[in-house]
């Protein structure tokens, strides 16, 4: 059996989730600009969900005496956002990526922290499905949400 890096601790996994939340909040800026109507409302609600989890994580990590990773001034987007279609595609991707970080936190956590991680994984996976519906991407679901592909 090959040697592998030690699995992340609970604090490390939650810190990684926090960094993902920062990036998600940043991404919803340019996404929201390209959307209108109910899609823009959905983007605002999604961004609010990421802000809530960011705030909770900062408090949680601080209280535990763990390292709180700093927010960055900007984050590289995987592709340019030029129109509604690319904005919706990025919204799907943002939710999938943050879901993946929370999924990774499941193994490192237990009890209330694991419940919190699973709640986030489910929430973001469902949001990704809603964005796929708005973008008319088929199928609406993936077999293993949050699993690295």
């Amino acid at each position: 059996m090959s040697e592998r890096a030690a699995p992340p601790t609970s604090a490390e996994a939650l810190a990684a989730a926090l960094s993902a939340e920062y990036a998600a909040i940043y991404a919803y800026g340019p996404i929201g600009v390209r959307l209108s109507g109910s899609a823009r409302t959905a983007a605002r609600q999604a961004e609010a969900a990421h802000r809530r989890r960011r705030d909770a994580l900062v408090v949680q990590l601080t209280t535990a005496g763990a390292t709180v990773p700093p927010d960055q001034a900007g984050y590289a987007l995987p592709f340019p956002i030029t129109d509604r279609a690319s904005a919706l595609r990025l919204a799907v991707e943002v939710e999938e990526r943050t879901a993946a970080h929370w999924r990774a936190a499941l193994a490192a956590t237990s009890g209330g922290d694991r419940d919190q991680a699973l709640d986030a994984l489910i929430d973001y996976s469902v949001r990704a499905t809603r964005w796929r519906r708005t973008a008319k991407i088929s199928p609406l679901t993936v077999p293993f949400p949050g699993r690295p592909t």
Binding site: A99, R103, A104, L106, A107, A117, L118, L121, I122, S125, V126, A128, T129, R130, R133, P139, L140, T141, V142, P143, F144, P145, G146, R147
Partner: peptide, 16 residues
Amino acid sequence: ALVGSIAAARATHLEA
């Protein structure tokens, strides 16, 4: 992680 993904998948099926 696998069980969590299955829970999330089932939630997305409900949404779909």
